[in-house]
Design a binder for these strands. Structure first.
Lengths: 335, 335
DNA sequence: AGAAAGTATGTAACCGGTTACACATTATTT
DNA sequence: AAATAATGTGTAACCGGTTACATACTTTCT
């Protein structure tokens, strides 16, 4: 592998000139440029990114810390992040935290050692002092769907509360008279806000009861178990709002297994808008977040912070959209 | 951030000693070790991975190049790779190639610049000379589910042909009398071998016809379209072997939409064993590859090659396993 | 015309580690 | 007791870039 000194020698100039040429900073004479270009070509020179990183303390690397790539929501997010990163010449390091605080901490330590230029964080447990620590070390950070308590930092999220209310309203619109909610982990902003949205929408209604909510842990099996419990307690439930699509998929499966027709006997609505809602029959109505867009925007935001185009912290709240599908499409809208 | 020289000064020794201590190579006196440990602790010293990479030409980074993280098969693979990598102190760079040769080439170039220690490759188009080039540059490579034509290199794959035969046999065992196949891209080893397995199993049977196969492009919509075409040509098809689970999911959806009962009217079998086969009703029978294990093994293999524990190229062929589920569980086994 | 600003390039220190080599001391062989 | 081996440590070059600073020549301004 040729080095910058080889190129300098061949072109008959100093390494500084080569560096200036490569980074397009400082003056380089047109004739010199030609000579340098020629030398680079003949030597097939590629600048060494590691050396660059050491000298310039910029590695062209960003890290994505999130619970689990196996979760389709995060997979789509990761895809968006990588696409944007590649466009800007950055490389993405993948970190599955499983929402475990110790893994997150280990990653942060390792990432610092590796001089990552910035971190995109979509896991649960980042504490305010971690955020502060990163800030002190001048490592840009963007949080996805969760904001630390005290510390200020850039956040990209969407309107969970409003989305939950849209979901419940839609279920009522198609004629549901007793709507249950399967909620996600209350340590998460998403799980919490969607539950609150549900409660605000229904707590004043005559049929409401606190026993109409059941945890589903954002998992398929959680959704299945929740349906079982709910239907046992309230056999007359005719609408279910699941706190995310994964749980909705579990709910659908369980309902079908119990011989209940969806949507005629029980209508079902999820949240997130992952593609999997389309592979089942009936397809699942869902409140969709623009996942890919969220990934794109947060990555762009991060890169802008890295490159100094943005100094202040920003918050972006995306709109959500109700997508009605088979799981709430009733033949007769009785009432 | 403290550097190795700071630590050396505080401990009253030279940088070489610190380095020897950290890397556990060379002699270091026990008393000295204590002093160094103390200094490291008080300064909260963390060695800089970039500097290490530059000096030692080892970055502790491996790259995973594959088509698309959004595909659940690759997501699970990525998870396995990251898990193993983390255990060994490596970091994973994510590269979505979309099976486009130019993206693959760009990635390889970038990865070389970044001194990745090794590459795990699961995309289509790697040419033999690319493999040779990497070999010349001493960058270890492990291929997943595809082997280059001429060049020799380490390969991890599973028994696709045998698996396809198992699938077809199983469909016949449950009483299917006319079995179609939805095949994947013929540029892929997986798509090709599974098709061949199907053909070898059925071509001698009286009902066989070349029009019983239809492409599905390894996609859900491809599976749906294929079912539509197949059923139009042969309304008496009573068994479908899909070349992967994604297409099987599409097939199931289409069949249900056409009002055909699965498994009683048409039995269905997929290939891969991704978790999604469990979220639909009925659950889909599939020939499962040990995806997570394949990811683990290939990563271990790569790391061993990186660390010089293995010199020669190795090939691992995993066994596949038929997992029977609702989509082939017929009430009456007529015949 | 002389000062100031702009253009062009080179030297050498620096980023933060690793490691070959030299040297000194202590332990083991013969 | 001398030769040899093992242990312990330091010096300084090196990995391959970036960049502050110095220098010199042009061009523009007053």
């Amino acid at each position: 592998m040729a080095t910058i000194r080889d190129v300098a020698k061949l072109a008959g100039v100093s390494v500084a000139t080569i560096s200036r040429f490569l980074n397009k900073n400082g003056y380089v004479n047109e004739d010199t440029k030609l000579k340098v270009e020629q030398a680079i070509k003949t030597l097939q020179y590629e600048p060494n990114a590691i050396a660059r990183g050491l000298a310039g303390r910029k590695t062209g690397t960003i890290a994505l810390i999130f619970p689990d790539i196996t979760n389709p929501f995060f997979a789509e997010l990761a895809r968006a992040v990588e696409d944007v990163a590649r466009m800007y010449g950055y490389t993405v390091i993948l970190c599955n935290s499983d929402n475990q605080a110790d893994k997150e901490q280990t990653y942060i330590k390792v990432l610092k050692q590796r001089y990552v230029d910035g971190i995109l964080f979509a896991s649960y447990n980042l504490r305010s002092d971690d955020v502060e620590a990163l800030k002190n070390e001048k490592i840009p950070l963007v949080m996805l769907d969760r904001a630390p308590r005290d510390a200020s930092c850039s956040v990209v999220s969407s309107k969970h509360l409003e989305g939950a209310q849209m979901a419940v309203q839609h279920l009522m619109d198609v004629g549901c008279k007793k709507i249950a909610h399967i909620y996600g982990p209350q340590e998460t902003v998403t799980g919490r806000e969607r539950l609150i949205g549900y409660e605000q929408s229904v707590k004043h209604l005559p049929w409401y009861s606190p026993s109409l909510v059941e945890p589903g842990y954002f998992r398929v099996d959680g959704g299945m178990a929740a349906v079982e419990n709910l239907m046992q307690r309230h056999p007359d439930i005719d609408g279910i709002f699941a706190g995310n699509d994964t749980m909705a998929l579990g709910a659908l499966k369980k309902l079908q297994r119990m011989g209940l027709h969806v949507p005629d006997q029980v209508a079902l609505c999820g949240f997130d808008g992952i593609d999997l809602t389309l592979i089942v029959e009936p397809e699942i109505t869902t409140v969709s977040q623009p996942i890919y867009d969220m990934g794109m925007l947060s990555t762009r935001l991060l890169i802008k912070k890295i490159e100094g185009d943005i100094k202040e912290e920003q918050t972006h709240l995306f709109d959500v959209k109700l997508i009605t599908r088979g799981s709430t499409e009733r033949k007769r809208n009785d009432e």
